[in-house]
Amino acid sequence: MRPNALVGFAAAILGGLYTIQVHRLPKAIAGDASSPVSFPLALGLLMTVLGILLVLQEARHGLTNLEGVKRPAFTAPSLRTIFRTVAASLLYAFLFERLGFFVSTLGFLGTLLYLINGRRAWKLNAALALGFTLGAWALFVQLFELPLP
């Protein structure tokens, strides 16, 4: 399918789901009952219409006609790196308050540096991770007096 048509379908579905959610919102008790609903309702409908228009625009060329269309390229190695980075980030978010800033940040940075620089540069990776963690602690906690767990 043409990439823009995919975007159109996704937008129409998102707009539809959002509009359904708008209808499930409670009405305001005081003042105009529909005031918290009217703006989101307009957005939901607009998103649905825009999605449909984009699909229709693409349908003129044939929804599956990919001639002259630049498709988004997803290669296995790059997706693997991206998946690992996202997984490491989610794990970091999960552990940040549980393990505290120092341990979690050191581990997170070490993981990311390993993903990028590889195992051979482990000494450099370790030094950079430690240096950054200490530097960030000095900046946030000491200089700006922002508490970190």
């Binding site: 409670p26 305001a28 008790i29 003042g31 005031s35 918290p36 989101p40």
Partner: peptide, 8 residues
């Protein structure tokens, strides 16, 4: 905030 309704 004006209506106190939680949205989404």
């Amino acid at each position: 905030s004006p209506s106190g309704v939680s949205r989404f």
